[in-house]
């Protein structure tokens, strides 16, 4: 069969999305939308007391690349600590997917942003200032 516009990895995650669904007792939920195309991505996080991602689920309204990006993001998040989550960039998601067409890179950016929003919600639920996420993210960027 002729190859489509997406890599095998993208097609695999599109057809068999990992960790799709919701977490009822999530302690961090992030939702982002792309005003240009209307995609909506939502990430549910369950972070343990020792700061490890115990469980993560996603729901996505969007194209093949958006679904695959969110699915891949959740795979990369499981078992990671908060520092590692903050270091998870859209580039890493694209690489793990075996690449995305240029016009679809924004889908991976949405996934990174959804993770950030979920972490902000997590800090908020703990009574902390969500701005800490931006600060930590900025620091990581600087260190790199």
């Amino acid at each position: 069969m002729a190859k489509g516009p997406y890599s095998e990895k993208v097609m695999d995650h599109f057809m068999n999305p990992r960790n799709m669904g919701e977490i009822d007792d999530a302690n961090g939920v992030g939702e982002v939308g792309n005003p240009a195309c209307g995609d909506v991505m939502k990430i549910f996080l369950k972070i343990s007391d020792n700061n490890i991602v115990e469980d993560v689920k996603f729901k996505t309204f969007g194209c093949g690349a958006a679904i695959a990006s969110s699915s891949m993001a959740t795979e990369l998040m499981i078992g990671k600590n908060i520092d590692e989550l903050l270091q998870l960039t859209n580039d890493a998601i694209v690489d793990a997917l075996g690449g995305l067409p240029p016009a679809k890179i924004h889908c991976s950016v949405m996934a990174e942003e959804a993770i950030e929003e979920a972490l902000k919600d997590y800090f908020k639920s703990k009574g902390e200032d969500p701005a800490i996420v931006d600060e930590m993210k900025a620091k990581i960027k600087k260190d790199n």
Binding site: G4, P5, M15, A36, C37, G38, D39, G62, C63, A65, A66, P101, P102, A103, K104, I105, H106
Partner: peptide, 25 residues
């Protein structure tokens, strides 16, 4: 398509997969 049907869509996301930029969707 995976189920064996060839159809069309007018959604932004499906508009121009070969574009170099998301603004072209």
């Amino acid at each position: 398509s995976l189920k064996g049907f060839a159809c069309a869509s007018g959604s932004a996301c499906s508009s121009n997969i070969l574009a170099e930029d998301e603004d072209d969707l």
